[in-house]
Simulated assay, not measured.
Amino acid sequence: MPRPLTKPQASAWAAAQPPTDNQPTAPALSEADRVHAPRAEPAGASALGDETPPPTLRGAARERIVAAAFKVLAERGSHNTSIKEIAKAAGVAAGLVHYYFASKEALLLEVTRECSRRYRDEMASIPLPEDPREQTRTLLHWSKDRGLTLPDWYRLLVDLDALALRDAALAKEVSDLKREVRAHLCGHIAAVEGRLSRPLGQSHTAYAAVLMAAVDGLILQRLIDPEFDMNAGFSALESMLIALLEQRNDSDDKTA
């Protein structure tokens, strides 16, 4: 005979059920949201210790919470968003959000962590030409297009950075995320350098940090000022990088 649910398990089960007529329904996600909104992993150990919901109740509600948080936090910002509003958008009880995430900042971090994984996966899947200059152009064009089509993702990054400036624990987590992205970029930089006649002259990590700062900075300026010419900024960045590659590849035809 199945063991009866404990009170916390019963509460979690009730909160995870589909919304009724009296409960708000999660808004439909656009095609872009469905592709890029994070997919949360099934929950592991909970804040309630041994009072973990049965496995069949995990995952679906948590996934709705993280996807709704992505949409609401990106649109309104962390300071203007409450756990209650995220729960309403997800169509679950606020208590279930607290069950999975200790704070709003923890939820924001989980959203950003999952988006970062997708960012790295997408970058790794880009077909790159062999020529170092064309590789550089391809990656820059991909970054620019991403900034134009996924502004919500970059708004989340800016919000997370601002919170990390005032929270030491969060700062460590954000630093780890940025370190992972830099490490991924280092792989691309190493591949480019391997096709040059001379080394780039600085560490791969240093170049990765500069690229992240330049790309994120251009996109941030566009988010703040819609009239900012981001295309011109990326074109200037591309020219500087191509000039550097040509200096390190003197034997090549520089007209490419």
Rank of each mutant, 00 (worst) to 15 (best):
A171F: 03
Q17L: 09
A236C: 13
R179G: 10
H204V: 09
A206H: 12
L163V: 09
L148M: 14
A87H: 04
V210K: 09
T20V: 13
L73M: 02
A68H: 01
Q23T: 14
I83A: 00
A102Y: 00
A94M: 00
F228S: 00
L140F: 02
C115Y: 00
R58G: 06
P129K: 11
D167L: 06
A69V: 01
S116P: 02
P129E: 09
E75Y: 01
S235P: 03
S46M: 04
D121K: 11
K104H: 12
G201V: 04
D216A: 14
G217V: 05
D167G: 03
G233W: 07
D253A: 09
T149E: 15
F70N: 02
T56V: 11
A191M: 12
E75H: 04
E227R: 11
H98K: 08
P54M: 08
V92C: 02
H79V: 06
Q17M: 10
A89K: 03
R222W: 04
A37V: 00
A26C: 10
A60D: 11
D152E: 15
P19K: 02
H204P: 07
A183M: 10
V210R: 13
Y119W: 12
Y119V: 02
T149L: 14
D229G: 08
P129I: 09
E180H: 06
Q247T: 15
N22Y: 13
R166D: 15
R222S: 08
I86V: 13
T20H: 09
D121A: 15
D121W: 10
L220F: 14
T25Q: 14
T52C: 10
L245T: 08
G59E: 05
I219H: 02
R248Y: 01
K84C: 01
A236M: 15
A67R: 12
R198M: 09
G44N: 12
L150S: 08
S11F: 12
T136P: 04
A94K: 07
A60E: 05
P24K: 04
A191K: 15
T52M: 13
D252S: 15
M123P: 00
M123F: 13
L163E: 10
D131A: 13
A90V: 05
Q17V: 05
T136K: 03
R120H: 05
H184S: 08
P199T: 14
I189H: 06
T255Y: 06
L163N: 07
E193Y: 03
S251E: 15
G194N: 12
A32K: 04
D33Q: 14
A183Y: 15
A102F: 04
D159M: 00
A12G: 05
G44P: 02
S251C: 14
R62T: 01
H204K: 12
D33S: 11
S11N: 12
A61V: 09
E193T: 11
Y207L: 15
P55Y: 03
D121L: 13
S197C: 07
R117P: 02
A68P: 00
I126D: 04
S203H: 11
R182C: 08
I86A: 03
I126Q: 07
L200Q: 07
D131M: 03
S235W: 04
A164G: 08
A208M: 07
